[in-house]
């Protein structure tokens, strides 16, 4: 048996009950080839310090709960492996640009509030009775929005977006991508309503095309493209208002 390898994990801790500012804790833990950062944190919580707080659920990059800054980059802890970070130390911090609730848990209230505002559901373009059957769609119509529907709301793109960090009123990358997903759906009829948000000062115009949001997205959603396509759409609408026959 080879000696088990070890790696040092540094975590930015924040325990509001202690009444202190954030501080760093370090643990050196054994790890194997197949261990993710999430499993490393679980090892620490189970055997070294039960007070370490973090969110997780599925362990397979689909629930979007375990987003955190790993080595300064927003990543899902479940799909980031300790072997790739050797020899360490591995620096772990709560997702940037969000208020820290406790340790690695951030306050996602702002995100969830905005999620409601974009109406993330299909408002049927025309009501249909059961007898009329389902709303059908061609593969080409599906292709228009499919990639944007892969978003898992992990908020990594918000931590990659300095404009959201500088101005939390900004709707931000991920939710604009999700908004775009519904607006691009041939079955949906609420596009005009959602575009009011796109056009507004909280909408797409805070974006300066940094582009990092699309780089860190674990699902290749390309939120930067969704935001910028909507800038074009919003600009066309801005000028189209002055054409005869328009509003």
């Amino acid at each position: 048996m080879p000696e088990p390898r070890t790696i040092t994990v540094e975590v930015l801790r924040y325990q509001p009950a202690k009444g202190t500012n954030p501080y760093v804790d370090r643990w050196t833990i054994p790890y194997t080839e197949d261990m993710s950062v999430l499993q490393g944190l679980q090892y620490i919580k189970d055997t070294l310090d039960g007070s370490l707080t973090f969110r997780w659920s599925c362990r397979m990059a689909i629930c979007g709960s375990c987003g955190m800054m790993i080595g300064g980059v927003p990543k899902l802890a479940c799909r980031t492996f300790l072997r790739d970070l050797a020899p360490g130390p591995v620096r772990v911090e709560a997702l940037a640009h969000f208020p820290i609730e406790r340790d690695l848990v951030v306050d996602a209230e702002d995100f969830v509030g905005k999620l409601e505002r974009i109406k993330p559901w299909i408002e049927p373009r025309e009501p249909r009775t059961l007898e009329e059957g389902p709303y059908t769609q061609t593969p080409a119509q599906l292709a228009r929005y499919e990639s944007f529907s892969h978003c898992i709301n992990c908020m990594l793109c918000y931590s990659a977006c300095p404009q959201y960090g500088l101005n939390p009123d900004f709707l931000g990358p991920g939710l604009t991508a999700l908004l775009h997903r519904y607006n691009s759906d041939s079955r949906d009829g609420a596009s005009a309503e959602r575009m009011q948000l796109v056009h507004s000062e909280e909408g797409v115009w805070s974006c300066t095309a940094v582009g990092y949001c699309s780089e860190v997205c674990p699902k290749q959603v390309d939120p930067a493209n969704a935001v910028n396509v909507n800038k074009t759409a919003s600009a066309i609408d801005w000028f189209a208002r002055f054409l005869p026959g328009k509003r």
Binding site: Q196, L197, H199, S200, E201, E202, G203, W205, K231, S234, A235, W238, F239
Partner: peptide
């Protein structure tokens, strides 16, 4: 919601 004048 106030419409942005950034498009121009």
């Amino acid at each position: 919601m106030k419409r942005s004048n950034q498009p121009v």
